[in-house]
Write a protein that binds this DNA or RNA. Structure first.
Length: 485
DNA sequence: ATGTAC
């Protein structure tokens, strides 16, 4: 539990630890949380976010979002912007599951229309979207072709018939980050990844059917612009990443950084898990180019899954996906490091922004946003636990304070081990069905790990982001069907 | 998160 007296309270939802808190801190650390979230904040977060504050080149603050919890090196929920010339790039600040992210898709169906078909729909999705540890997808391509996927991302998918052209402009980076170089990726990573496009994975990865209750529309105007136009509307949300491929890229470069960090670059860190290299070093640049391949692999993964989701809906309702209004709202990444321009103390600066379990949330007018969202600000998809619900938020101008970053989900309160001891998968599944949520999972123990009480209160997390001014509520979604990886 | 151990 956090020792609150150590913190300077900047506002009711911003808590600061000054550089005197720990030797070597270059900038203060800031945690975004309500009092209630702060009282229960993982002690590991405080240790880790202040460790991050010691990294070379860090600008302004080391941040942790309200859904923060202990992670590898950096906390999950960590945000750190580095000066390009003096700063480092750190795999621990991005996460093993590079570009783990969320995609939200509309339908024009209502709850009453979907309810009689719910079991069939979930069963078909479970059968057609591969999930679980390992597992290969239905996209059969050679390892050489996979290299094209790594460099073209979701664009490769559209070219090959998996999706609609408009999906690209509704995806962060338009589904393809530039600068991905597959020659910087190991053969081992290619071998692990080339059969994994279109697969959900395991852990907290899932695909969910959700309903928008009228009382959960907080900004009707924005909701309408994002395509939420009718009462009890059904949407599909899913969460997955770059699978074994991204994991292998992270593993490869962590090893490479550990070899050179101290000997070649004289960087001393407080925790091996903070392994890093100067951004402009050969090792740093190679990792950046390889990590971008994993970003693109993940965009492609979610693009192919979207294609499958549309196919299944078309089958079950015997209507075209176009006719079902299955437009994508947006796709957000929440494990990345990207070069972005931000205003620091009144001057524009190029920064490497690490977001690990944190969502980019650009406000209205940002150059990176597509025309359709230029005026509104960026849609932000925040996935809650399978029992409680999720949110659609929007980026706001005040988000500049966190380099336009906000929360990405609920955040765990309990270790997986502890959750497995406390909950029983089969009973949980039955309880959820009683409450109108139909779940399919490859593993009961995996299901138990994802029980609602193993996560923070999503409403409290979202409130913290809104009250601190880093994002704003649009709608809340209630789960009715879940495919758990 | 992860071919849940090089």
């Amino acid at each position: 539990m956090a020792v609150l007296k150590d913190f300077i309270r900047i506002s009711d939802t911003i808590w600061e630890l000054p550089i005197t808190y720990k030797e070597g801190m270059r900038v203060p650390a800031r945690i975004y949380a309500t009092q209630k979230l702060m009282e229960n904040m993982d002690e590991g977060v405080i240790d880790q976010v202040t460790n991050v504050a010691t990294l070379p080149g860090i600008v302004k603050y080391a941040y942790c979002m309200p859904d923060g919890h202990w992670g590898y090196g950096f906390p999950i929920g960590g945000v750190a912007a580095m000066d390009l010339k003096t700063g480092v790039i750190s795999p621990g600040g991005i996460g093993f599951d590079v570009n783990c992210g969320m995609r939200l898709v509309l339908t024009n169906l209502t709850y009453d229309e979907v309810k009689p078909q719910l079991r069939k729909l979930v069963d078909r999705l479970f059968a057609r979207v591969p999930s679980g540890v390992g597992g290969s997808g239905f996209v059969r391509i050679s390892q050489d072709e996979f290299r094209h996927v790594l460099e073209q991302g979701a664009r490769w998918c559209i070219k090959n018939g998996y999706g609609w052209q408009e999906d690209l402009e509704r995806t962060e980076e338009r589904g393809c980050i530039s600068g991905a170089d597959s020659s910087k990726v190991s053969n081992k990573a290619i071998e692990r990844g080339f059969k994994q496009i279109g697969t959900l994975g395991s852990g907290n990865h899932y695909l969910e059917i959700q309903v928008v209750r009228p009382e959960n529309v907080f900004d009707p105007q924005l909701a309408k612009t994002f395509g939420i136009t009718q009462p009890e509307q059904i949407v599909v949300m899913f969460h997955c990443g770059s699978r074994g491929f991204g994991h292998q890229v992270a593993t490869d470069y962590l090893q490479s950084f550990l070899k050179v960090m101290e000997k070649k670059y004289g960087i001393k860190i407080l925790d091996r898990e903070l392994a890093c290299a100067p951004f402009f070093s050969p090792e740093g640049q190679d990792y950046f180019a390889a990590m971008k391949c994993a970003i693109n692999m993940s965009f492609a993964n979610r693009q192919v899954i979207l294609h499958r989701v549309r196919e299944v809906f078309a089958e079950v309702f015997n209507r075209d996906p176009e006719d079902l209004g299955m437009h994508q709202v947006y796709d957000v990444a929440h494990n990345t490091a990207k070069v972005e321009e931000h205003i620091v103390d009144g001057k524009p600066r190029q920064l490497l922004v690490h977001r690990k379990g944190a969502t980019r949330a650009f406000g209205p007018g940002a150059a990176e946003l597509p025309e359709i969202y230029k005026k509104t600000g960026q849609p932000v998809i925040v996935g809650g636990s399978m029992e409680t619900g999720s949110y659609l938020l929007v980026g706001v101008e005040e988000g500049a304070q966190t380099f336009f970053s906000t929360a990405h989900g609920s955040g765990r309160t309990m270790s997986r081990h502890q959750a497995k001891k406390q909950f029983h998968g089969k009973k949980l599944l039955e309880d959820m069905e009683q409450r109108g949520i139909y779940v399919r999972s490859v593993s009961f123990s995996g299901l138990a790990e994802e029980a609602g009480p193993a996560y923070k209160d999503i409403d409290e997390v979202v409130q913290a982001t809104e009250r601190s001014g880093i994002s704003k509520k649009v709608t809340r979604f209630i789960p009715i069907g879940n495919i758990k990886g």
